[in-house]
Simulated assay, not measured.
Amino acid sequence: MTPYFVLVLLLSASVVVSGSIEKRIVGSKSCDKDRQYHVQINVVAGGKTCGGALLNTRWLITASHCAEQKVKVQLGLNNDVSFFTKAKSFFKGNSKKHEQEINTNQQFTFKDESGNSHDIMLIKLNEDMSAKLPAIGLPPLGCKRPELKSKVEIGGMGSKKAGAKPESSVRCASTEISECGENDKPASKYHSDESTTMCAFKPGVEACYGDSGSAVEFDGVLHGIIVSDPTDKCANTIVMLDICHYRQWIEDTMKK
């Protein structure tokens, strides 16, 4: 395949993307230059797609139910570089770093002192990403969760239709921290309680199929991971895990 032909294909793909139907997070808008840290996670065996967030050149974070088997991660999907810069990277072979298959021995699910698994996972990449690729910042050790009614930012590439392919660009929306209902919790195989789980609600804003694992931002840093996993309709009350509860574990796991 000649370089000219590849360039034509890439240009054609960009046209298709710009005209794609918007059906991601309900109530969302284009992220523009925000969420350049967003990661898309696909189970290699098929059937499951999620989001995630790049923490640094080697580590990303997501929900445990999004992986726990071999996955392909796609990075730099919303990277703010020109099309020609991306094409140059493609020809140099650097774009291979942006798609990595990760085995389970590089996936780390949080387990509490009783051995219960929580729906939050760190994934170690096979090789470092460029330090120029934006990552999301973490709150300080000892941080506290956002208060009720605090405005938080969510985003993702999920579809409103179960089983559909993820959309081709990242969408962003704002919502508010709210009280959790009795049934607002991660899947039953994962432990959760009031100290680990947060919720957000805003009329017209929903997380859909494929948005699990995506980051929740507050004051410009990571404060939550979406664990809502819709089965029959998009989730209006968005369930997330409180990053502050896991902050020390994140630090220790990445150091080890």
Rank of each mutant, 00 (worst) to 15 (best):
P3C: 03
V6L: 12
V6I: 12
V8N: 11
L10T: 03
S12N: 11
A13V: 09
V15Y: 06
V17A: 15
S18Q: 13
G19P: 10
G19L: 15
S20Y: 11
E22R: 12
K29Q: 13
S30Q: 10
Y37T: 06
N42M: 13
N42V: 14
G47L: 11
T49L: 05
C50T: 02
L60Q: 06
A63N: 02
Q69Y: 07
Q69G: 11
Q69V: 14
V71G: 06
K72F: 02
L75E: 01
L75T: 04
N79Y: 05
N79T: 05
V81D: 06
S82P: 04
F84K: 09
K86L: 15
A87Y: 13
F90P: 09
G93M: 10
G93E: 04
G93I: 06
S95G: 06
S95M: 11
K97Q: 04
E99W: 01
N103I: 05
N105Q: 10
Q106L: 15
Q106I: 04
T109F: 07
D112R: 06
E113P: 02
S114I: 05
I120P: 05
I123A: 04
L125V: 04
N126R: 15
S130V: 08
S130L: 14
P134R: 01
I136Y: 12
L138N: 02
G142E: 05
C143D: 03
E147F: 07
E153M: 14
I154K: 02
M157Q: 09
G158N: 03
K160I: 07
A162V: 10
G163Y: 03
V170G: 05
R171F: 14
T175S: 04
S178C: 00
C180I: 01
D184K: 00
K189T: 10
M198E: 00
P203R: 08
A207S: 15
A207F: 01
A207C: 08
G210R: 00
S214L: 07
A215K: 03
V216E: 00
D219V: 03
D219N: 12
L222S: 06
G224A: 03
I225V: 15
I225N: 01
V227A: 01
S228Y: 00
T231R: 12
C234L: 05
M240D: 00
M240R: 00
L241W: 02
L241I: 06
I243L: 09
H245Y: 13
R247Y: 03
R247M: 10
Q248V: 11
M254Q: 05
M254L: 09
